[in-house]
Design a protein around this nucleic acid. Structure first.
Length: 612
DNA sequence: AAAAAAT
């Protein structure tokens, strides 16, 4: 069995890293230019200088939105963990110099360029000395509140130049046109490079993917190359990234491939609903970083196609989702009952935009002396997303939706057709609404768990390209998906959990663009009244009086908005009611406390963030 | 009660 990194060093050819059908076309379809749609509620409200409707000219992928800022410099955080002695891991912190080992890689196989034709010369100055085409509100940087807790929190960095990620990775960072780390990257990357476990709360679209990918790729590049067993049909990835949906795993894979281009670090994705054989072939060509959904991974583990015994890095994206009732047993099985090194030996990183305390407590089982990091308001309620709640009876929802869509179509949107993402509660409801929309002349498609994987991927592509500018979705599309140009999220059916609402509306208002989120509220959603009203108030949104009244009849027992205050989430270890829970050795020790409190000034309900 | 995730 070949594994890519070892192979590269041994001058053994590996397969080219063609991409297992992960699509993600970046085709920029041009559409007739029309005046921007201005939602009625904004027409008299917004300063003329601002475009109230989302601009459709952002970068192709808004997931990580900073750009490279300068040359590389010495290593400040050549972090090494203590426990990889066997493999000598951690001893290789000698900058990118130890990285010449790609010599055996280059000649034979041409790695597919994930940057496509856009691969500008990364060394040209103009490409990265400005931030002009990112559309990111960098002013928001200084105002973003940050809470860290845990022992000896490494200080944040301000530029990529302050950290030595290695030449090859730096080049890719430039190719991605990232100039400056986003807030979560500024804090999380030094923590990860120092080898620490991490629980990070950061808003959707704030650059989480890069925040965990950069340290993983860098660590693999500079770490000692472990001897991976040969001659068995089992592969031994060094890093595992788990996510709750197939499409999100695909997206992470695509991002990670860009970051690891020409580093020799190989990224493979595995998820259900697609032929396993192709994925097996990709795995057998070598894998350093495996991105997967839980079900398919368990399958691969049980067939002994994959072993986790070499795992150094474990990252859970949407970690609270991964640890909720539906997923937790599977995750526990993968992490605790297979052959993965125990916590403390591997490095574990959990990321999400929301992190309920109960889930934090569960999560601490997987972590060792970890650092808790909350960047910005957890939950996307930024001023960039205008939230509108309307009281609509069940029977009126379709005609009301029709009104919204008509208004939108009549106005059109500059450049490209505005994309509208409609969330419904059930798969059946999704099909039926899609059918009805199509009957009524609105090009719609749908994505949900009853569709074949092929249909799902086609639907997403068709939506992204603007071919089918209306996507009806269940919660399968609620988390993590980075779909540029979503102008409007409509909660046709509201979710029961406020966190789900937060993730859903986070599909718009990305990359510093404004977005609109409309929700249909009725008597079935009473349990959401209080948390919703609280969330909107916190986000400086206009709360309808009727919603305030429902909210004040607080007898509905909905989940109240997390602790209130400036952060959407707090380290549960700071909460005395959890402090005696006996969950092991992970209590907040009162140690450095990191930068907590340091940002308390200047942050109010009106603070704007590009990181939703 | 629903959704997601393996075949």
């Amino acid at each position: 069995m070949r594994t890519s990194w070892a192979d590269a060093v041994d001058n053994v050819a590996t397969g080219s890293s063609d991409n297992a059908g992960t699509s993600g076309g970046k085709e920029q379809k041009s559409a007739p230019t029309k005046p921007a749609y201005v939602p009625p509620h904004l027409r008299n409200k917004t300063p003329a200088s601002e475009s109230p409707a989302p601009s459709l000219s952002g970068p192709p992928s808004g997931n990580d939105r900073s750009r490279y800022n300068g040359p590389t410099s010495g290593s400040q955080w050549a972090g090494s963990r203590s426990d990889y002695g066997r493999q000598g891991y951690g001893s290789g912190g000698r900058g990118s110099g130890g990285w010449g080992g790609r010599s055996g890689w280059g000649g034979r196989e041409r790695e597919v360029n994930p940057f496509g034709n856009d691969d500008v010369d990364a060394d040209t100055e103009h490409a990265f000395n400005e931030q002009e085409n990112t559309g990111i509100n960098f002013d928001a940087y200084e105002d973003i509140p940050v809470e860290t807790s845990g022992d000896n929190v490494p200080p944040p960095v301000n530029t990529f130049a302050e950290i030595d990620l290695g030449d090859a990775l730096n080049l890719n960072i430039r190719r991605c046109k990232y100039v400056k780390p986003t807030p979560v990257q500024r804090h999380a990357i030094p923590i990860s490079l120092a080898g620490r476990d991490l629980m990070a709360c950061a808003q959707t679209g704030s650059g989480k993917t890069a925040a965990f990918c950069f340290p993983i790729i860098s660590g693999i590049m500079r770490g000692h190359i472990p001897q991976r067993p040969r001659g068995v049909r089992t592969v031994f990835p060094l890093a595992l990234i788990l996510s709750p949906t197939r499409e999100l795993s695909m997206q992470i894979h695509e991002e990670a491939r860009k970051f690891s281009y020409q580093t020799g670090v190989r990224v493979v994705v595995a998820y259900g609903g697609a032929p396993i054989n192709q994925q097996l072939r990709e795995l057998e060509r070598g894998v350093d970083i495996l991105v997967a959904t839980p079900g398919r991974l368990v399958d691969l583990l049980e067939r002994a196609k994959v072993s986790l015994q070499m795992i150094r890095y474990l990252a859970l994206d949407e970690a609270d989702r991964m640890l909720d009732m539906g997923f937790e047993p599977q995750i526990r099985k993968i992490v605790e009952q297979m052959d993965m090194p125990p916590r403390g030996e591997r490095q574990t990183m959990l990321f999400s935009a929301t992190f309920p305390k109960e889930i934090q407590r569960l999560a601490s089982d997987f972590l060792s002396n970890y650092i808790f990091l909350a960047v910005g308001r957890v939950g996307s309620s930024t001023d960039l997303i205008v939230q509108r709640i309307e009281f609509v009876h069940e029977s009126d929802k379709r005609s009301h939706l029709m009104d919204l869509l008509h208004a939108q179509r009549a106005n059109g949107v500059q450049g490209k057709q505005a994309l509208t993402l409609v969330f419904v509660e059930t798969k059946k409801g999704a099909d039926s609404l899609e059918h009805w929309l199509c009957l009524n002349g609105f090009p719609a498609t749908t994505i949900h768990g009853d569709r074949t994987q092929q249909e799902r991927e086609l639907a997403l592509r068709s939506f992204k390209s603007g071919n089918t500018p209306i996507l009806v979705a269940t919660d399968v599309a609620a988390r993590g998906l980075d779909i540029p140009h979503v102008a409007h999220v409509i909660n046709f059916d509201l979710p029961n959990d406020i966190d789900d609402y937060v993730h859903r509306i986070g599909r718009t208002g990305r990359a510093g663009k404004t977005g609109l989120a409309t929700a249909f509220f009725n008597e079935n959603n009473m349990s959401l009244a209080k948390p919703l009203a609280d969330l909107m108030k916190e986000a400086n949104q206009e709360v309808p009086d009727w919603l305030t009244r429902f909210a004040s009849r607080a007898s509905y027992g909905g989940k109240s908005r997390r602790g209130g205050g400036r952060f959407g989430a707090r380290d549960f270890r700071r909460d005395s009611s959890f402090n005696r829970s006996g969950s092991g050795n992970d209590y907040y020790g009162g140690g450095s406390g990191g930068g907590y409190g340091g940002y308390s000034g200047g942050y109010g309900p009106a603070a704007t963030s590009a990181w939703d």
